[in-house]
Measured scan of single mutants.
Amino acid sequence: KYSDMIVAAIQAEKNRAGSSRQSIQKYIKSHYKVGENADSQIKLSIKRLVTTGVLKQTKGVGASGSFRLA
């Protein structure tokens, strides 16, 4: 599940300011076997996790910027 992968990526990075979408994508692609549409799936999952309150956006708008666990 992409949401689990995103949470794992943010936990692994341990950046106080949060993790960027690009760094999350890079982590997921190197640690998991994902399909061609992974980028758009990650983007959608990040937006969903922010609206449900699992992630907090520290910089930027939408799916860009930095995110950390709430």
Rank of each mutant, 00 (worst) to 15 (best):
K1S: 14
K1P: 09
K1T: 13
Y2A: 00
Y2L: 09
S3W: 06
S3F: 14
D4G: 06
D4C: 15
D4I: 11
M5I: 02
I6T: 01
I6D: 01
I6Q: 00
V7E: 01
A8N: 05
A8H: 07
A8Y: 05
A9H: 02
A9I: 03
I10D: 00
A12M: 05
A12T: 04
A12V: 04
E13I: 13
E13Y: 08
E13S: 12
E13M: 15
K14R: 10
K14D: 10
N15I: 04
N15G: 09
R16V: 11
G18S: 04
S19A: 10
S19P: 04
S20I: 03
S20H: 03
S20C: 05
S20P: 03
S20R: 03
R21F: 15
R21I: 15
Q22V: 09
Q22G: 07
Q22R: 09
Q22T: 09
S23G: 05
I24M: 02
K26M: 10
K26Q: 12
K26D: 12
K26F: 09
Y27L: 01
Y27M: 01
Y27G: 00
Y27C: 03
Y27V: 00
K29T: 07
K29L: 10
K29M: 09
S30E: 12
S30K: 09
H31I: 05
H31T: 05
Y32A: 01
K33M: 11
V34H: 03
V34R: 00
V34S: 03
G35A: 07
G35W: 04
E36I: 12
E36F: 09
E36Y: 09
A38E: 05
A38V: 09
A38F: 11
D39L: 07
D39F: 06
S40K: 15
S40D: 12
Q41E: 13
Q41S: 06
I42Y: 02
K43N: 15
S45A: 15
K47C: 14
R48E: 11
L49N: 00
L49A: 02
V50R: 01
V50E: 03
V50W: 03
V50F: 03
V50S: 02
V50N: 01
T51V: 13
T51I: 14
T51R: 14
T51M: 14
G53M: 03
G53E: 02
V54M: 05
V54Y: 05
L55H: 00
Q57G: 04
T58K: 05
T58I: 13
T58Q: 06
T58M: 11
K59D: 07
G60W: 07
G60L: 06
V61S: 12
V61H: 12
G62A: 06
A63H: 11
S64E: 15
S64W: 09
S64P: 09
S64M: 11
G65E: 14
S66G: 12
S66K: 14
S66F: 14
S66N: 12
S66D: 05
F67H: 03
F67Y: 14
R68I: 14
L69V: 07
A70D: 04
